[in-house]
């Protein structure tokens, strides 16, 4: 039996599970769409881990991260619950020791993390602007009728990338249609889109930050060769994409669980994939805040409640 560390990253778009051994080597990773159903995604993720590695696993620690980290922690019995910034920074530092800048672009959010001597010194997250995230590329690829997988290859074949307004997804789209109608080749338009996204990211998320090499680029969008090229051109430096770029959040969570080194993990066992979890909710009428209280139940037992401002419900159940 070998001891392993589980890292679970429950994001709005994807849910990732990473399994590390004692030496921090990645044994397997699972990438799933969350589809708005984090509980099912977590169960499916763990099921796949068992399918790949077998049942003979001794879980020495579990870490959760992502916007669904709280839910995942209660469900699985996590030892460490960490925000995405810390998880991504830890993973990037491990993959590329001495990293000073982490660019992370996922489906619905993007972040920049600045590290100096291995410690996070500054960070920023994008929350409001769709033009700075992967969904922007997804949408435009769909508009152009090309699979997102071909996007990078097409962009690399560009001779003269066209300039497309990147400040806003709506402006970008009308600008792009205009360039299409003028007859610019597809390669140049696709490359232009990558550059627009990079400009938007650097102006919005990266504004005021001192971007120094080594620069690591991670998140789902790092799969796109066009984006990698656009970043290294804009920054004038090499951009490193780590091997497990798509699951760095989960990777970091697993590393953090290992670092915490619990004597006995509070992991609730792989059987939890077969148990029935349900979330329910109600609107509290205690005051005019009308908080939407959410509760997580396993069978009849309430595991946790959250969503109230005053603590009336969340404190009633020991988490």
């Amino acid at each position: 039996m070998s001891a392993i560390y589980l890292g679970i990253d429950v994001g709005s778009v994807s849910t990732n599970v990473v399994v590390l051994n004692q030496q921090c080597q990645l044994l397997t990773s699972v990438y799933l769409r969350t589809h708005g159903q984090p509980i099912l995604a977590i169960q499916e993720g763990l099921r796949r881990v068992v399918a790949t590695l077998g049942r003979d696993l001794e879980v020495a620690g579990v870490g959760t991260t992502g916007s669904g980290r709280g839910l995942a922690a209660v469900m699985t019995g996590a030892d460490v619950v960490k925000n995405e910034i810390t998880a991504h920074a830890v993973a990037a530092s491990y993959a590329v020791p001495g990293v000073q800048t982490v660019l992370e672009i996922g489906g619905q959010d993007s972040k920049i993390i600045i590290l100096r001597q291995g410690v996070v010194t500054d960070f920023a997250m994008n929350t409001v602007c769709a033009a700075g995230t992967g969904s922007f590329l997804d949408q435009q690829a769909a508009r152009l009728g090309i699979p997102i997988e071909d996007f990078g290859r097409l962009a690399l074949g560009a001779q003269n990338p066209v300039r497309i307004a990147g400040r806003c997804a709506v402006f970008a789209e009308s600008d792009m249609i205009h360039k299409q109608q003028q007859g610019h080749p597809l390669n140049d338009i696709v490359a232009g889109l990558c550059e627009a996204l990079v400009r938007n990211y650097l102006n919005n998320v990266g504004k005021g930050k001192e971007i120094l090499p080594p620069v690591v680029f991670q998140g789902g969008v790092a799969a796109n060769a066009g984006m990698r090229q656009a970043f290294s051109r804009a920054l004038g430096t090499e951009v490193i994409v780590p091997e497990h770029f798509g699951v760095m959040g989960a990777f970091g969570a697993a590393l953090l669980a290992r670092e915490a080194g619990p004597k006995v993990s509070s992991f609730r066992g792989f059987e939890l994939t077969e148990r029935e979890f349900r979330t329910g909710g109600f609107e509290c009428r205690g005051c005019t805040n009308h908080c939407e209280v959410v509760e997580l139940k396993e069978g009849k037992e309430i595991l946790a409640r959250w969503g109230d401002r005053c603590g009336k419900w969340s404190n009633a159940v020991a988490v």
Binding site: N83, T86, F123
Partner: peptide, 21 residues
């Protein structure tokens, strides 16, 4: 509140790691 909470946690983490160092 999730967005604010994430930022605060990350900020506190950052300061704590910095301080320990």
């Amino acid at each position: 509140e999730a967005g604010l909470q994430t930022r605060l946690e990350a900020f506190v983490d950052m300061l704590r790691r910095h301080k320990n160092k």
